[in-house]
Nucleic acid binder design. Structure first.
Lengths: 125, 125
DNA sequence: CTGCATCCGATAAGATACTG
DNA sequence: CAGTATCTTATCGGATGCAG
């Protein structure tokens, strides 16, 4: 007696559904980077520490397939691909921010040290 | 160059940290059930469709270990154990609600049918 | 009733190599 | 530069059995 099915997967509640779209280790960090920048693949890669090539590619594919980011391929050599956040992605950012702030509170609560609270203006190098 | 370490695990951002505490398939549904009820193990079990014995036990253990729920054992036969949400758990519920509402919006957005939008007043049978 | 341990299959994710 | 494919390991989670 599943609640609903989407993409051949059974879901039992809306939270699970939302988390499958924007959850996981990397999707939120990716959306976060695209918040107010259009970025190339390599730029995203450089800006997210420890993410592997495979993970970044697959997560971008999923985010694109579900309309959170859009992918523009420039037919040049060497290849150039830009990723832009969509309206749906921007909406998701709101949730990311809520969770992020909560995470910061929790960390404080748990006594976990964390420095870069300050918003990062410039993203890489 | 990890951002921080907690419980022998490396985290790279606050979102990941938060999701490790209250994320996953079952933690939010569990907290949700305890929102305004003190429940016994078996009651939680019955109220969450498809959750397995193993998963419920392990998730409750983690939630307890990190202070989101408290566990009271009554020294009777047969055993009786009650789970209560803590202040920290109540705070988490706020986030759960935000994510849940977002999930509902997303589902509408994706055209996923879902009936029981109405708040469930009574929980089981 | 509640909880723990064990086994095992499914899935996620890292490393690496190859392509246009 | 960006993307795909393969191989391999690690973790998650289901089923089951046993115990106080």
């Amino acid at each position: 007696m599943p609640d609903f099915i989407y993409n051949n997967k059974i879901y039992y509640n809306p939270v699970e559904f939302a988390m499958d779209r924007i959850g996981g280790t990397w999707k939120m960090p990716i959306l976060w980077r695209l918040k107010d920048h259009v970025l190339r693949y390599g730029e995203i890669k450089k800006s997210i520490p420890h993410i592997t090539h495979k993970m970044l590619t697959s997560q971008l594919r999923e985010l694109e397939a579900e309309g959170f980011v859009s992918r523009v391929v420039f037919p040049v050599v060497p290849p150039k691909v830009e990723y832009t956040i969509t309206a749906r992605g921007t909406k998701a950012i709101t949730i990311v921010e809520v969770i992020r702030n909560y995470g910061l509170e929790l960390m404080k609560d748990f006594g976990v040290p964390y420095e870069k609270i300050k918003t990062q203006k410039k993203m890489q190098s």
